[in-house]
């Protein structure tokens, strides 16, 4: 049984100004899959996500989301198609309350229609968001903000959840908790996820497939078990 392709990037080159950060990137996400993109700082992981979301316009290549040619869709319309981007560094709306942040997550039609049920689910996954729903997001701790950012993404009832470094700047215990939740969410809701991570172990452990990005190019891809034993990953991070 082969699952249908949900998102497909073909030979994407993209960057800021004249220099391409991403060079010839091809990535595929199947329905219900969790794929990881790992790589050191500056490899172009965030640029990759921004290209999918439409903040960065690629200089060449194609992106297809189901049957849609995504590059022909304006950035702010892409969320309406079913893409939810949980950006690097969380980027919650600090002057909005938790509840308002979640409402904004549900800005697109689908999320709005299913907001009540989604809200319950989000609160059951991240109870702290329910307890403090009237608190301003800017006053939350880093870990809570990350949970809110993920909750905000889930509130859209998305087809694809794009997670950009959910572990960034968080204490190990909190990272463990967040990853545990993510896996639970992925398994119970069969949500398709693209995870960009610097913590290779977790990123590989949970993924169906993974890509290794270095200096804007995909240097390795495959099953996590294969990658885990590849010396190049250990070397990329620890130099040993």
């Amino acid at each position: 049984m082969t699952k249908p392709v949900l998102l497909q990037l073909d030979n994407i080159c993209a960057g800021y100004g004249e220099i391409d950060v991403l060079q010839d990137i091809s990535i595929k996400l199947l329905e219900g899959e969790l794929i990881s993109v790992v790589g050191p700082n500056g490899a172009g992981k965030t640029t990759l996500f921004k290209t999918i979301s439409g903040i960065v316009t690629p200089s060449s290549g194609q992106i297809h989301f189901r049957e849609n040619d995504l590059l022909g869709v304006e950035a702010s319309r892409r969320a309406h198609l079913g893409l939810a981007h949980v950006p690097e560094g969380r980027q919650v709306f600090p002057s909005l309350t938790i509840l308002e942040n979640l409402e904004m997550g549900a800005f697109a039609e689908k999320g709005r229609a299913e907001f009540k049920e989604n809200l319950e689910k989000i609160i059951s996954w991240f109870p702290v968001l329910g307890e403090r729903r009237e608190q301003l997001a800017g006053t939350l701790s880093g870990g809570e903000q990350q949970m809110l950012a993920i909750g905000r993404g889930l509130a859209a009832s998305p087809d694809i959840l794009m997670l950009d470094e959910p572990s960034m700047g968080l204490a190990p215990a909190i990272v463990d908790e967040i990853f545990e939740r993510l896996i639970e969410i992925h398994r119970t809701s069969e949500l398709s996820v693209i995870l960009v991570e610097q913590r290779v172990a977790e990123a590989l452990h949970f993924a169906n497939r993974a890509y290794v990005l270095e200096a804007g190019k995909i240097i390795l891809s495959g099953k996590p078990e294969e990658l885990q034993n590849d010396d190049r990953i250990r070397q990329a991070y620890l130099g040993m």
């Binding site: 190990p172 172990a201 977790e202």
Partner: peptide, 19 residues
């Protein structure tokens, strides 16, 4: 430093050490 378990955990995650 490269052999320090704390450092490895901070970088690659606890799972790496478990594996």
């Amino acid at each position: 430093i490269v052999k320090n378990p704390q450092v490895i955990e901070a970088y690659l995650g606890k799972k790496w050490l478990e594996n």
